[in-house]
């Protein structure tokens, strides 16, 4: 079993969800054009990741496993995530309208964000306990947030440049991501396995 420190380094740097594990790329490329929306999306992802790992752990180990229903795990995880996102949306809308206005549009997108389902499935595959699962959700969200903010800051500055027509937009974003990802690859081997 990994200790919490190893999980944190793993979640944020070594196995960064966006740059190393390729999870959540759709939202990454779509929302990282400006820092404000990138921050909103990251906050929503971080929040739902923690909630989803908590709820999924409880359902998986207290309902699915004792009853031998583990083959239903994918379907129950996606329903848990969809229900959670709805719930979070209702609560935020009721109690904090300003937060809803800034996060609201990102919440529906999160249900189909592979990073969330990814963290839940990874928790099960790695056989993490309760505290570890929740902590992994938290650190994976932190890693996502960090890369999202880095990328949006870079893209905001690089927008001023003149690039050839065929590289504009997505290809350019991919080249930036290549360099960022190369930097993160250097973290391989930081944690001896």
């Amino acid at each position: 079993m990994d200790n919490l420190f190893a999980i944190a380094i793993n979640g944020i740097f070594v196995k960064n969800f966006l740059l190393v594990q390729f999870l959540g790329l759709c939202s990454f490329l779509g929302v990282s054009k400006e820092t404000k929306s990138a921050a909103g999306m990251s906050a929503a992802v971080l929040f739902v990741m923690i909630m989803a790992s908590t709820a999924a752990f409880i359902i998986f180990s207290y309902i699915l496993q004792p009853l031998g229903l583990t083959f239903l795990s994918t379907i129950s995880f996606i329903i848990i995530i969809a229900a959670l996102v709805q719930l979070v949306e209702f609560i935020i809308r009721k109690y904090s309208p300003p937060l809803y206005r800034s996060l609201g549009i990102f919440l529906p997108l999160i249900t189909t964000n592979c990073a969330i389902l990814g963290v839940v499935v990874l928790n099960v595959r790695l056989e993490y306990g309760f505290v570890q699962s929740v902590f992994y959700g938290f650190t994976a969200g932190l890693g996502y947030t960090m890369v999202m903010l880095l990328m949006s800051a870079i893209r905001e500055r690089i927008n001023i440049l003149h690039v050839p027509g065929s590289i504009q937009g997505l290809p350019h974003a991919f080249f930036i991501t290549t360099l960022l990802s190369l930097a993160f690859v250097n973290f391989f081997g930081v944690i001896p396995t």
């Binding site: 740059l19 390729f22 290809p171 991919f174 991501t177 290549t178 990802s181 690859v185």
Partner: peptide, 12 residues
């Protein structure tokens, strides 16, 4: 083979 290669290939 590393993640960076994937991003570069698809970018190109």
């Amino acid at each position: 083979i590393l993640p960076g290669g994937a991003f570069m290939t698809i970018g190109v």
